[in-house]
Simulated assay, not measured.
Amino acid sequence: MPEQFASNANAAVVRRRPILAVTCGEPAGIGPEVSIRAAWERRAEINSVLIGDAAFLAMIAAEIDPKIRLVALSQQALRNNGLPNFGLDQVAVIDCQLEAHVQPGKLDARNGRPVLRTLDLAIDCALQGIFDGIVTAPLQKSTINDAGVPFTGHTEYLAERSATPQVVMMLATDRTTPPLRVALATTHLALKDVAAAINFDSLSRSIDILHADLQKKFGLKQPRILVTGLNPHAGEGGYLGREEIDIITPVLDAAKARGIAVSGPYPADTLFQQKYLAEADCVLAMYHDQGLPVLKYASFGHGINITLGLPFIRTSVDHGTALDLAAAGLGHADHGSMLAALDAAAQMVQAGRQGKA
C-alpha cells in the first residue's frame, strides 16, 4: 500500500475507534492497574480515556511497562476544545488530582471526593456526547461515605446524576455457552427491604428497560427473558409467599400482551440449568444475591457489570477493589474483567451505530 494511503487508512481507524471514558476507581485498590493494562492492550481497537490523577497513573504505568505512553489532558482543555484525536500508540488521561498520597491497600477518606469527581466528569462528558460510553473500575463505597457523601454504588449514582428514573443492573459473561446474562429487579438493598421494593410498576419498568436495551445495545431482535420468583419454590402456590401470584405473574402477563418474550416466575434454585438457559437471552432475578452468585461462580474475574436504561453505555468489572492484591504490589491483579468490560462497551457502541445506519 502506498505510504500516503496507509497514513489515511490509519487515521480512519483512529476516528472509528469507540471513545470510552475509563474511571480508574479507588486509587488504593487494583483499579488503576487493571485500567492501564486493559486500555493499553486494547488501544488499537478502542480509544480508552483514563480519568484519574495523571501523575499517579503515569507512575503506575512506568512500573508496569516503560513502553506505555500516557498523554495527560486537563479538564479545562477538554471542556474548551474537546478530545484530541489521539493516535494508536498512546492513551489519554484526563487529570483529576487526588488530595492525599496513595498507599496501596490503605484507604484514605481524603480521596473519596476526588474519586467521585472522576465519575462526575465521565457522566457529564458522556451526556455531552464527548464519550461513546463509560467503563468503571471498582471504587470503595466506604471511602466516599467517610468523605461525607452518601453513596450506595455506581448504579444508583449514575441514575441520579443522569436524571434517569429507573435503571437495571445486569451482569454478563461470555465464558458460558450460551452467554449468561443476569439482570436484577432490585440492586443494593438490605434483604429485609426487597419484598416491599417489588411492585407492579417498578417490575414492569424493569422488564421494559431490559427488553429495550437487549434490542438496542445487544442487537437481539426478540430477546427471550426468564424471570425468577421471589420466594423459595416461587412461592409454592402461595404457601411460601404471595408475591408471585399477586405481583410477578400479573406483570409478566401484561408484558406478554405488549409483545415481550418473557416467561416465569421460575424457582431460582432450579432455573440456572442448561436446559432452561439454552432457550434464554437473559434471566431477571428479584434481588442481588439471588442471581449473581451463579454468574460469578461461572466467570468471576471475566464477567462484566452493565447498567441498562441510562442515556449512555456503561459497563464495569465484576470484582471489587481487592485491596489485598494492591498491597501485594503490581502484577498480582488480573485485568481480564476490565478487558471484557471494554470489549462489551465497544460492541454496544457498534451495535448502536448499526442500528442508526
Rank of each mutant, 00 (worst) to 15 (best):
M1C: 13
M1K: 10
E3C: 12
E3S: 15
Q4S: 15
S7I: 14
A9F: 15
A9K: 13
V13F: 11
R16V: 11
R16H: 13
I19G: 09
T23I: 05
C24D: 10
G25Q: 01
G29Q: 00
P32D: 02
I36S: 05
A39I: 01
R42N: 10
S48M: 03
I51Q: 03
A54W: 01
I60A: 02
A62H: 14
P66N: 01
L70R: 10
Q75T: 12
Q76N: 15
A77S: 14
N80C: 14
G82T: 05
L83K: 03
A92L: 13
V93Q: 08
C96M: 14
Q97W: 10
L119S: 05
D120C: 11
L121H: 11
A126T: 10
I130Y: 12
F131A: 06
F131I: 07
F131W: 08
D132W: 02
D132G: 04
D132P: 11
V135C: 04
A137K: 01
N145F: 06
D146Y: 02
F151G: 00
F151A: 08
H154C: 02
E156D: 07
E156S: 09
Y157D: 09
A159M: 10
S162P: 08
Q166C: 06
V168I: 03
M170V: 02
T173G: 09
D174N: 13
T176G: 04
L180P: 00
V182M: 03
V182S: 04
V182I: 13
A183N: 00
L184T: 00
A185K: 07
A185W: 02
T187M: 06
A190E: 09
D193H: 13
A195H: 03
N199C: 12
S202A: 15
L210A: 05
H211C: 14
H211R: 13
A212I: 06
D213Q: 09
Q215S: 11
Q215M: 11
Q215E: 08
K216C: 11
G219Q: 00
L220E: 00
K221A: 15
I225Y: 04
L226K: 04
G229V: 08
N231T: 07
N231G: 07
H233Q: 07
E236S: 10
Y239I: 13
L240P: 04
I247R: 03
I247H: 05
I248W: 01
D253R: 15
D253E: 15
G259L: 10
Y266I: 02
A278M: 13
E279T: 11
D281W: 00
V283A: 00
L284I: 00
M286L: 02
Y287F: 12
Y287R: 00
H288A: 09
P293L: 06
V294I: 11
V294A: 03
Y297L: 14
Y297G: 14
A298S: 12
N305S: 10
I306W: 03
T307N: 11
L308Q: 01
P311Q: 09
P311E: 06
F312W: 05
T315D: 08
H319V: 05
A322H: 00
L323Q: 04
D324K: 07
G329D: 06
L330C: 01
A333M: 08
D334Y: 02
L339H: 08
L342Y: 01
L342T: 03
D343R: 14
M348I: 08
V349A: 07
A351R: 13
A351W: 10
G352C: 12
Q354G: 01
A357G: 14
